[in-house]
Lab assay of single mutants.
Amino acid sequence: TGEEYIAVGDFTAQQVGDLTFKKGEILLAIEKKPDGWWIAKDAKGNEGLVPRTYLEPYS
């Protein structure tokens, strides 16, 4: 299990392996990579890379 984050903006996948999401979606951070791209999972179970700058902790 990971930590929940809320998307603060829309993001469209730029390449294969990225995860597209919309502002307000809750994402589960699976792995926090030091380069600023995290592996996350959305509510539908889709998994991919997301930019850290689009996420804020969800409580």
Rank of each mutant, 00 (worst) to 15 (best):
T1L: 13
T1R: 14
T1K: 13
T1N: 13
T1F: 13
G2F: 14
G2K: 13
G2S: 11
G2P: 14
G2A: 12
G2M: 13
G2W: 15
G2R: 13
E3L: 11
E3G: 10
E3T: 10
E3N: 12
E4Y: 15
E4P: 13
E4W: 15
E4H: 14
E4V: 14
Y5N: 01
Y5L: 04
Y5K: 00
Y5M: 06
Y5P: 00
I6A: 04
I6S: 03
I6T: 05
I6R: 09
A7V: 04
A7D: 00
A7W: 01
A7H: 00
A7P: 00
V8M: 12
V8L: 13
G9T: 14
G9H: 15
G9S: 15
G9Q: 15
G9I: 14
G9Y: 15
D10R: 03
D10G: 06
D10T: 07
D10F: 04
D10N: 09
D10K: 03
D10I: 03
F11M: 04
F11R: 07
F11Y: 14
F11T: 02
T12D: 11
T12L: 10
T12M: 11
A13G: 12
A13N: 04
A13S: 10
Q14M: 12
Q14Y: 09
Q14V: 12
Q15S: 13
Q15E: 10
Q15P: 03
Q15V: 10
Q15M: 11
Q15K: 15
Q15G: 11
Q15N: 14
V16P: 15
V16I: 12
V16K: 14
V16R: 11
V16N: 10
V16C: 11
V16H: 12
G17Y: 06
D18H: 15
D18L: 14
D18G: 14
D18T: 13
D18V: 15
D18R: 12
D18I: 14
L19D: 00
L19P: 01
L19V: 02
L19C: 03
T20Y: 04
T20Q: 07
F21R: 00
F21M: 05
F21S: 00
F21K: 00
K22A: 08
K22H: 09
K22N: 08
K22Y: 10
K22E: 06
K22V: 09
K22T: 08
K22G: 06
K22M: 09
K23D: 03
K23A: 09
K23F: 07
K23E: 07
K23L: 07
G24A: 03
G24Q: 02
G24R: 01
E25L: 03
E25Y: 05
E25H: 07
E25S: 08
E25N: 07
E25D: 15
I26M: 07
I26V: 10
I26C: 06
L27V: 05
L27P: 00
L27R: 00
L27K: 00
L28I: 15
L28E: 07
L28F: 12
L28P: 00
L28W: 14
L28M: 11
A29Q: 03
A29G: 03
A29L: 15
I30H: 03
I30C: 06
I30W: 04
I30S: 03
E31H: 13
E31D: 12
E31R: 10
E31W: 11
K32V: 06
K32P: 05
K32I: 08
K32Y: 08
K32D: 03
K33S: 10
K33E: 05
K33L: 12
K33T: 09
P34F: 10
P34G: 12
P34Q: 11
P34R: 09
P34L: 11
P34N: 13
P34Y: 10
D35Y: 06
D35L: 04
D35N: 12
G36H: 05
G36T: 03
G36D: 07
W37K: 08
W37N: 07
W37E: 03
W37F: 09
W37M: 09
W37I: 08
W37S: 05
W37T: 06
W38A: 02
W38V: 06
W38R: 00
W38K: 00
W38S: 00
I39T: 07
I39D: 02
I39N: 05
I39P: 02
A40C: 15
A40T: 04
A40N: 01
A40I: 07
A40S: 03
K41Y: 06
K41G: 03
K41R: 15
K41V: 11
D42L: 02
D42C: 03
D42W: 00
A43F: 09
A43L: 11
A43Q: 13
K44A: 13
K44Q: 13
K44E: 11
K44L: 12
K44C: 13
K44P: 03
K44R: 12
G45E: 04
G45S: 03
G45N: 06
N46M: 08
N46F: 08
N46K: 09
N46Q: 10
N46A: 07
N46V: 09
E47N: 07
E47G: 05
E47W: 11
E47S: 11
E47Q: 14
E47P: 04
G48K: 00
G48H: 02
G48N: 00
G48C: 04
G48W: 03
G48S: 02
L49I: 08
L49N: 10
L49M: 11
L49H: 10
L49S: 10
L49E: 05
L49V: 08
L49T: 13
L49Y: 14
L49K: 13
V50Q: 00
V50F: 01
V50R: 01
V50G: 02
V50I: 05
P51F: 12
P51W: 10
P51Q: 10
P51L: 10
P51K: 08
R52I: 14
T53H: 14
T53C: 14
T53Y: 12
Y54K: 10
Y54N: 06
Y54R: 07
Y54A: 08
Y54I: 07
L55C: 05
E56S: 10
E56V: 14
E56M: 13
E56T: 10
E56I: 13
E56W: 09
E56N: 07
E56D: 07
E56G: 05
E56R: 11
P57L: 12
P57H: 08
P57C: 08
Y58D: 04
Y58G: 05
Y58L: 11
Y58P: 04
Y58C: 08
Y58E: 04
S59H: 14
S59G: 11
S59N: 14
S59M: 12
